[in-house]
Amino acid sequence: MSLDYVKFAPGFEKFMPKEYRDMVEHGPFGKKITVSQVGTFKEILEEHPMCAGCAMTLFIRLAMIAFPNPEDTITVGTAGCGRLAISQAAVPFVYGNYGDQNGVASGLSRGLRLRFGDQPKDVVVMAGDGGMADIGFAQTLHSWFRKEKFTTIMLDNEVYGNTGGQESGMTNRNQVLKMAPLGKKFEKMDMLGMAKVAGCAYVATVVPNNPRRVESVIKKAVLVAREIGPTYIQAYTSCNIEYAIPTDKVMEDAKTVETDRYKFSEYITDEAKEYLSQLYGYREYLPKPAAKMESK
């Protein structure tokens, strides 16, 4: 995990596949890349078996473009659709047993701090709503209460997509699914509220129909988790299979859902604001100047 780990061993360039050579020579490592530059550099995400047109795939792609230092990042995932793509990228990926991802990430992030001291290494968990709000609920909450410094991203498709359509705690009330034929009996869980109560320093909701906003929240969440405390992003990433959304209407759905019930929201503590403004020049978080002095 450093710029060196992607480089070729001397003499091996010509034996490496084209995709790998492109990634080393024209990838984002060690550069400042933005989402508006896509299509002109080699992305670290490779081919994977997630469904055509899946919004979760798009979100994962954008998140990986947005990592502030991909060469110093480790992703942690678990069972569920997302890991099929997250594991196919040129950043190390750790697979936690289903629901264990935030426990694994806690140990990893502590270990990296011991080993590398003040050289930041970013740990980013990306897991489904079932893996995070149901099976991994205790570990997710505990990592937040314990102020573990890493980023947790929920890929919220509001269903167990990978296993064919069971309801999760994040499914909306009354939603009928293939394996919830009578409709869900209770409300969607308020994980955002819980993240704030548990002490996350940055919490955001986002929908991938706004790529630059995805980029902005990922960057902030990863930077704040380096020094200040746990961060949480909840992303609406529809499952076009279980919710029967035609693939060419996935962005239309994202737009509608964003307007109706998944509005962009951002919560950030004062400490995190100060950190971002001082270390990373986020002007939006600079204290507002006091009222202008009367001109003489």
Binding site: V35, S36, V38, G39, T40, K42, E43, I44, L45, E46, E47, M50, A52, G53, C54, A55, T57, L58, R61, L62, M64, N209, P211, M251
Partner: peptide, 18 residues
């Protein structure tokens, strides 16, 4: 406009030639 490039779910698929 480069919009489609940012919305394709697949990485390294819609590319751009200046």
């Amino acid at each position: 406009c480069k919009l489609c490039t940012q919305y394709c779910p697949e990485a390294n698929t819609i590319l751009y030639d200046n």
